[in-house]
Computed example of a mutant assay.
Amino acid sequence: MGEARTAVVAGIRQVYRIAGEGPVCLVHSGGPGVHPEYLRIPGLERGLTLVYLDPVGSGDSDLLTDGDYSVSRYARFAEAVLDDIGAPTGYFLGHSHGGFVALQFGLDHPDRLDGLILYDTAPANGRRERETATKEMASFVQRWADRPEAVEAGRMWDAVNLSRTMEVTDDESFGRYINGILPAYFADYRKTVERLGELALVVIHDPNRLPVSWDVRDRLGTINVPTLVIVGTYDFICPPRLAYEMHAAMPNARLCELRESGHFGHIEQADEFASAVLDFIHDQETGNRK
């Protein structure tokens, strides 16, 4: 990944890095508060100029002193990066929470988009989505009931989200929680670890971060840019049903389901993920927009 660059918005530093060659594509990781390094995608760098964002409140970017991490505000910082590199338009690949930002960008700044890649994400974030994730987590634990790391992931999820016996108050407790539930984000965590080695996410906890409830389901039909929706069959946090809802509601969308992936298809099925994205980009660039 290239060296860090910085766009400044109202005195706030938004750090980003550029790698690859081809059409410009912003890459917005999930979290929020998770270091974006996990979303490095070398397989796309052979066909795209990837502009990897360190979303505010994570990586090397600044925290927001007022705690207002609204999805529209994230979208504004992404637009500032396009301005900073002198790109009138670009594609936008958003993963998980980054997909919220991509959808919001499509609503707030449609004239700056060549296309959207909505990767393991959802059109809303609130109590209903948390309840769905809780049920999906229970299904994950049942599927791998003989694996201690799966049972522990379920226990950690319940401790934070149901019984409230564990609080996330700082970087350490946030890291312990997110890495404790990490096995649930994969179709087969052990298989991935055997191939790549131990996995761990680096996180930043901003105690000033205000809670955000967000829902654009009733506006999806107004986003008319070419869109690729990617989802892993075993994604517990943004399950396939939500991807199919987005695909059905958006007028210019196609869907790719990765049958052997969870929330991290770019890791579990890297070749298939890259092919889906590059084929989508190729079709837009050559006018084959079926």
Rank of each mutant, 00 (worst) to 15 (best):
V71E: 05
V51H: 06
V151S: 13
L64W: 10
R164D: 12
H205V: 03
F92G: 01
E136F: 08
L116M: 02
V229E: 04
T233C: 10
E37P: 00
L113D: 06
S72A: 15
E260L: 08
V160D: 12
N224I: 01
A150G: 11
L210T: 00
E194F: 07
P42T: 01
D279A: 09
R190Q: 15
V81R: 10
M137R: 01
E285M: 08
V225H: 04
V141N: 10
V229M: 07
C238V: 02
R73L: 11
E257A: 12
P42A: 02
V277S: 01
T134Y: 00
K135D: 07
R254F: 00
L82R: 09
W214G: 05
D66M: 05
P36C: 05
N179L: 06
L50Y: 03
L26I: 08
T222I: 05
R143N: 04
E21K: 10
T6V: 14
P240E: 15
T132V: 15
V71Y: 06
P123R: 02
V15I: 10
G197W: 13
D54Y: 04
P251K: 03
S61P: 08
S61D: 09
W214N: 06
Q14I: 01
P55D: 06
Y69D: 02
G126E: 08
D206F: 07
H97R: 13
C256D: 09
I85C: 12
D279N: 14
H28A: 15
P36N: 10
A124D: 07
I281Q: 03
E131H: 12
F174G: 02
F273A: 07
Y119N: 01
P88E: 15
R13E: 10
A276R: 03
V24E: 15
F236I: 14
P148V: 11
L242Y: 13
D188R: 09
Y16C: 02
A253V: 02
G11H: 07
Q104A: 07
G180C: 08
H109R: 12
T134P: 06
L162M: 09
G221A: 14
D271I: 08
L182V: 08
G59W: 05
I117R: 06
A80E: 11
H95V: 01
G265Q: 09
T134K: 05
M166H: 12
N288M: 08
A138L: 09
G115V: 01
G197L: 12
G221V: 00
H282Q: 09
D111M: 04
T286E: 07
P240K: 07
L278W: 04
D188G: 11
G197R: 09
L220C: 03
A7P: 08
F105T: 04
M137C: 08
G31A: 12
V56C: 10
P32M: 11
D188V: 04
G262E: 11
R13P: 03
Y185H: 14
L255F: 09
R195F: 11
P32F: 13
V216E: 06
P226Y: 04
T169I: 12
E136D: 13
E194C: 14
N125F: 13
V151Y: 03
S72P: 01
G175C: 08
L93I: 01
I281R: 04
H109M: 11
P211I: 03
L39W: 03
M1V: 11
Y91A: 06
G31Q: 11
L107D: 06
P123K: 03
D68N: 15
T165E: 15
N125C: 07
R73M: 06
D188W: 07
A78D: 14
V9P: 06
E131R: 14
F174K: 02
V231A: 15
S139L: 13
A4R: 13
Y69E: 03
